[in-house]
Amino acid sequence: MLEARLPQASILKKIVESVKDLVSQANFDCSDSGISFQAMDESNIALSSFLLRADGFDPYRCDRNLSLGIKFASLSKILKCAGNDDVVIIRYMDDADILSLVFESPNNERISEFDIKLLDIDSEYLSIPDQEFECKVKMSSSEFSRICRDLMTIGASVVIDATKEGVKFSATGDDGSGSVLLKQSGSIDNEGRGVVGTSVEMVEPVSLELSLKYLNNFTKAAPLSDSVAINMSNGIPVMFQFDVGDIGYIRYFLAPQIKD
Protein backbone atom coordinates (compact mmCIF):
# COMPACT_ATOMS: atom_id res chain seq x y z
CA MET A 1 0.00 0.00 0.00
CA LEU A 2 0.88 3.64 -0.34
CA GLU A 3 0.06 6.35 2.15
CA ALA A 4 1.66 9.72 1.69
CA ARG A 5 0.65 12.85 3.59
CA LEU A 6 1.67 16.11 2.00
CA PRO A 7 1.33 19.09 4.36
CA GLN A 8 0.40 21.53 1.57
CA ALA A 9 -2.00 20.71 -1.25
CA SER A 10 -0.80 23.71 -3.23
CA ILE A 11 2.45 21.88 -4.08
CA LEU A 12 0.63 18.98 -5.71
CA LYS A 13 -1.83 21.35 -7.44
CA LYS A 14 1.03 23.35 -8.96
CA ILE A 15 2.91 20.24 -10.09
CA VAL A 16 -0.13 18.87 -11.88
CA GLU A 17 -0.87 22.25 -13.49
CA SER A 18 2.70 22.41 -14.78
CA VAL A 19 2.57 19.11 -16.68
CA LYS A 20 -1.06 18.57 -17.61
CA ASP A 21 -0.86 20.50 -20.88
CA LEU A 22 2.20 18.53 -22.00
CA VAL A 23 1.20 15.04 -20.93
CA SER A 24 -2.36 13.70 -20.83
CA GLN A 25 -1.68 10.58 -18.77
CA ALA A 26 1.29 8.90 -17.13
CA ASN A 27 2.39 6.50 -14.45
CA PHE A 28 3.26 7.82 -11.01
CA ASP A 29 6.06 5.60 -9.76
CA CYS A 30 6.02 5.15 -6.03
CA SER A 31 8.79 3.53 -4.01
CA ASP A 32 10.20 3.87 -0.52
CA SER A 33 12.28 6.80 -1.76
CA GLY A 34 9.31 8.86 -2.97
CA ILE A 35 6.96 9.57 -5.85
CA SER A 36 8.29 10.26 -9.33
CA PHE A 37 7.05 10.58 -12.86
CA GLN A 38 8.52 10.79 -16.34
CA ALA A 39 6.67 11.19 -19.61
CA MET A 40 7.00 12.72 -23.04
CA ASP A 41 4.45 14.71 -24.96
CA GLU A 42 2.72 12.93 -27.85
CA SER A 43 5.18 14.20 -30.44
CA ASN A 44 8.25 13.04 -28.43
CA ILE A 45 9.65 16.55 -28.33
CA ALA A 46 9.46 17.50 -24.66
CA LEU A 47 10.01 15.28 -21.65
CA SER A 48 8.58 16.21 -18.26
CA SER A 49 9.60 14.61 -15.01
CA PHE A 50 9.26 15.25 -11.33
CA LEU A 51 10.42 13.81 -8.07
CA LEU A 52 8.92 14.29 -4.62
CA ARG A 53 11.19 12.68 -2.06
CA ALA A 54 9.71 10.58 0.70
CA ASP A 55 11.01 13.01 3.35
CA GLY A 56 8.80 15.73 1.88
CA PHE A 57 5.80 13.78 3.15
CA ASP A 58 4.91 13.27 6.78
CA PRO A 59 4.38 10.40 7.17
CA TYR A 60 5.27 8.42 4.06
CA ARG A 61 4.72 4.73 3.66
CA CYS A 62 5.18 2.66 0.51
CA ASP A 63 5.56 -1.08 1.02
CA ARG A 64 6.46 -2.04 -2.54
CA ASN A 65 7.17 -0.36 -5.85
CA LEU A 66 3.98 0.81 -7.53
CA SER A 67 3.17 2.25 -10.92
CA LEU A 68 -0.09 4.16 -10.76
CA GLY A 69 -1.57 5.25 -14.09
CA ILE A 70 -3.07 8.72 -13.77
CA LYS A 71 -5.08 10.83 -16.19
CA PHE A 72 -3.90 14.38 -15.53
CA ALA A 73 -7.15 16.06 -16.52
CA SER A 74 -9.01 14.06 -13.86
CA LEU A 75 -6.36 14.66 -11.21
CA SER A 76 -6.32 18.37 -11.98
CA LYS A 77 -10.11 18.62 -11.59
CA ILE A 78 -10.05 16.75 -8.29
CA LEU A 79 -7.17 18.84 -6.91
CA LYS A 80 -9.20 21.98 -7.64
CA CYS A 81 -11.46 20.74 -4.84
CA ALA A 82 -8.58 21.05 -2.36
CA GLY A 83 -7.78 24.29 -0.58
CA ASN A 84 -4.20 25.52 -1.03
CA ASP A 85 -3.47 25.08 2.65
CA ASP A 86 -5.23 21.75 2.97
CA VAL A 87 -3.26 18.68 3.90
CA VAL A 88 -3.43 16.01 1.16
CA ILE A 89 -3.27 12.33 1.94
CA ILE A 90 -2.61 10.12 -1.08
CA ARG A 91 -3.69 6.56 -0.43
CA TYR A 92 -3.56 3.41 -2.51
CA MET A 93 -4.58 -0.03 -1.26
CA ASP A 94 -2.89 -2.98 -2.95
CA ASP A 95 -4.65 -4.33 -6.04
CA ALA A 96 -7.26 -1.59 -6.04
CA ASP A 97 -8.10 0.26 -9.24
CA ILE A 98 -8.52 3.60 -7.56
CA LEU A 99 -6.31 6.16 -5.87
CA SER A 100 -7.82 8.02 -2.93
CA LEU A 101 -7.12 11.65 -2.20
CA VAL A 102 -8.15 13.02 1.16
CA PHE A 103 -8.10 16.78 1.77
CA GLU A 104 -8.08 18.07 5.34
CA SER A 105 -8.64 21.74 6.06
CA PRO A 106 -6.04 23.44 8.29
CA ASN A 107 -8.37 23.40 11.32
CA ASN A 108 -9.24 19.76 10.57
CA GLU A 109 -12.96 20.57 10.54
CA ARG A 110 -13.49 19.70 6.89
CA ILE A 111 -12.36 16.41 5.44
CA SER A 112 -13.14 15.54 1.85
CA GLU A 113 -12.30 12.35 0.04
CA PHE A 114 -12.12 11.74 -3.69
CA ASP A 115 -11.28 8.55 -5.55
CA ILE A 116 -9.69 8.67 -8.96
CA LYS A 117 -9.83 5.70 -11.33
CA LEU A 118 -6.40 4.38 -12.23
CA LEU A 119 -5.39 3.55 -15.78
CA ASP A 120 -3.28 0.74 -17.08
CA ILE A 121 -0.58 2.65 -18.94
CA ASP A 122 2.12 0.87 -20.86
CA SER A 123 4.79 3.53 -20.81
CA GLU A 124 8.21 3.41 -22.33
CA TYR A 125 10.94 4.93 -20.23
CA LEU A 126 13.68 6.92 -21.86
CA SER A 127 17.07 6.63 -20.27
CA ILE A 128 18.48 10.11 -19.87
CA PRO A 129 22.27 10.12 -19.91
CA ASP A 130 23.82 11.47 -16.75
CA GLN A 131 25.88 14.27 -18.21
CA GLU A 132 27.76 17.36 -17.21
CA PHE A 133 26.43 20.44 -18.94
CA GLU A 134 28.72 23.00 -20.55
CA CYS A 135 26.68 25.85 -19.19
CA LYS A 136 24.41 26.27 -16.20
CA VAL A 137 22.25 29.36 -16.01
CA LYS A 138 20.26 30.14 -12.91
CA MET A 139 17.74 32.96 -13.08
CA SER A 140 14.44 34.19 -11.71
CA SER A 141 11.58 31.95 -12.80
CA SER A 142 9.19 34.88 -13.16
CA GLU A 143 11.75 36.67 -15.35
CA PHE A 144 12.03 33.53 -17.47
CA SER A 145 8.23 33.44 -17.85
CA ARG A 146 8.14 37.08 -18.83
CA ILE A 147 10.87 36.70 -21.45
CA CYS A 148 9.21 33.64 -23.02
CA ARG A 149 5.86 35.45 -23.13
CA ASP A 150 7.34 38.66 -24.53
CA LEU A 151 9.39 36.95 -27.24
CA MET A 152 6.42 34.83 -28.30
CA THR A 153 4.93 38.07 -29.67
CA ILE A 154 7.87 38.25 -32.11
CA GLY A 155 8.56 34.69 -33.21
CA ALA A 156 8.04 30.98 -32.67
CA SER A 157 11.54 30.22 -31.44
CA VAL A 158 14.17 31.77 -29.23
CA VAL A 159 17.92 31.66 -29.45
CA ILE A 160 19.56 31.42 -26.03
CA ASP A 161 23.15 32.60 -25.98
CA ALA A 162 25.01 32.09 -22.73
CA THR A 163 28.36 33.78 -22.27
CA LYS A 164 30.40 35.01 -19.32
CA GLU A 165 28.62 38.35 -19.68
CA GLY A 166 25.21 36.82 -19.08
CA VAL A 167 22.40 35.19 -20.97
CA LYS A 168 20.69 36.62 -24.03
CA PHE A 169 17.32 35.56 -25.41
CA SER A 170 16.57 36.59 -29.01
CA ALA A 171 13.66 36.04 -31.36
CA THR A 172 13.09 36.96 -34.98
CA GLY A 173 9.83 36.94 -36.89
CA ASP A 174 8.12 38.32 -39.99
CA ASP A 175 7.39 41.64 -38.30
CA GLY A 176 10.72 42.26 -36.61
CA SER A 177 12.99 41.03 -33.89
CA GLY A 178 13.57 41.35 -30.17
CA SER A 179 16.03 40.37 -27.51
CA VAL A 180 16.50 40.46 -23.76
CA LEU A 181 19.93 40.34 -22.14
CA LEU A 182 20.23 39.42 -18.49
CA LYS A 183 23.62 40.35 -17.13
CA GLN A 184 25.21 38.12 -14.58
CA SER A 185 24.59 39.57 -11.14
CA GLY A 186 26.88 39.31 -8.19
CA SER A 187 24.98 36.91 -6.03
CA ILE A 188 21.80 34.96 -6.11
CA ASP A 189 19.46 35.58 -3.26
CA ASN A 190 17.47 32.42 -2.95
CA GLU A 191 16.71 33.07 0.67
CA GLY A 192 13.45 34.73 1.64
CA ARG A 193 11.69 36.76 -0.98
CA GLY A 194 14.64 38.63 -2.35
CA VAL A 195 15.04 39.30 -6.03
CA VAL A 196 16.67 36.37 -7.75
CA GLY A 197 19.62 37.42 -9.83
CA THR A 198 21.17 35.70 -12.81
CA SER A 199 24.22 33.49 -12.63
CA VAL A 200 26.06 31.75 -15.45
CA GLU A 201 28.44 28.93 -14.68
CA MET A 202 30.17 27.77 -17.82
CA VAL A 203 32.90 25.74 -19.41
CA GLU A 204 32.27 27.26 -22.83
CA PRO A 205 29.70 29.55 -24.45
CA VAL A 206 26.49 27.88 -25.59
CA SER A 207 24.03 28.95 -28.26
CA LEU A 208 20.80 27.03 -28.84
CA GLU A 209 17.54 27.63 -30.65
CA LEU A 210 14.43 26.41 -28.85
CA SER A 211 10.70 26.34 -29.52
CA LEU A 212 8.89 29.05 -27.55
CA LYS A 213 5.67 27.04 -27.58
CA TYR A 214 7.32 24.43 -25.36
CA LEU A 215 9.17 26.96 -23.23
CA ASN A 216 5.89 28.70 -22.50
CA ASN A 217 4.52 25.36 -21.34
CA PHE A 218 7.51 24.89 -19.03
CA THR A 219 6.93 28.29 -17.43
CA LYS A 220 3.77 26.85 -15.86
CA ALA A 221 6.15 25.44 -13.22
CA ALA A 222 7.30 28.96 -12.27
CA PRO A 223 4.82 29.22 -9.34
CA LEU A 224 6.69 26.30 -7.71
CA SER A 225 10.02 28.04 -7.45
CA ASP A 226 11.60 31.51 -7.38
CA SER A 227 14.35 30.36 -9.70
CA VAL A 228 14.87 28.13 -12.71
CA ALA A 229 18.08 26.36 -13.67
CA ILE A 230 18.71 26.10 -17.41
CA ASN A 231 21.39 23.50 -18.09
CA MET A 232 22.75 23.52 -21.62
CA SER A 233 25.38 22.00 -23.87
CA ASN A 234 25.71 22.75 -27.57
CA GLY A 235 23.67 20.40 -29.74
CA ILE A 236 21.95 18.31 -27.08
CA PRO A 237 18.65 18.64 -25.18
CA VAL A 238 18.38 21.41 -22.60
CA MET A 239 17.29 20.60 -19.07
CA PHE A 240 15.12 23.10 -17.21
CA GLN A 241 14.80 22.49 -13.49
CA PHE A 242 12.43 24.08 -11.00
CA ASP A 243 13.11 23.02 -7.42
CA VAL A 244 10.12 22.16 -5.27
CA GLY A 245 11.35 23.58 -1.98
CA ASP A 246 13.93 21.14 -0.72
CA ILE A 247 11.72 18.10 -1.25
CA GLY A 248 12.05 17.56 -4.98
CA TYR A 249 12.03 19.09 -8.42
CA ILE A 250 10.29 19.26 -11.74
CA ARG A 251 12.42 18.93 -14.86
CA TYR A 252 11.76 19.46 -18.53
CA PHE A 253 13.96 18.37 -21.41
CA LEU A 254 13.73 19.89 -24.87
CA ALA A 255 15.93 19.21 -27.89
CA PRO A 256 17.24 22.22 -29.79
CA GLN A 257 15.97 23.14 -33.23
CA ILE A 258 18.31 22.86 -36.18
CA LYS A 259 18.30 24.56 -39.57
CA ASP A 260 17.87 22.10 -42.45
Binding site: S127, P237, Q257, K259
Partner: peptide, 14 residues
Protein backbone atom coordinates in the same frame (compact mmCIF):
# COMPACT_ATOMS: atom_id res chain seq x y z
CA UNK B 1 13.82 25.79 -42.69
CA UNK B 2 13.87 25.08 -38.96
CA UNK B 3 13.54 21.51 -37.82
CA UNK B 4 12.50 20.45 -34.33
CA UNK B 5 14.53 17.43 -33.20
CA UNK B 6 12.83 14.64 -31.32
CA UNK B 7 14.20 13.56 -27.94
CA UNK B 8 14.25 9.99 -29.23
CA UNK B 9 17.41 10.74 -31.21
CA UNK B 10 19.21 11.68 -27.97
CA UNK B 11 17.74 9.53 -25.23
CA UNK B 12 17.67 5.78 -25.72
CA UNK B 13 14.98 3.38 -24.68
CA UNK B 14 16.57 0.93 -22.24
Amino acid sequence: KIHQQSLLSFFGTP
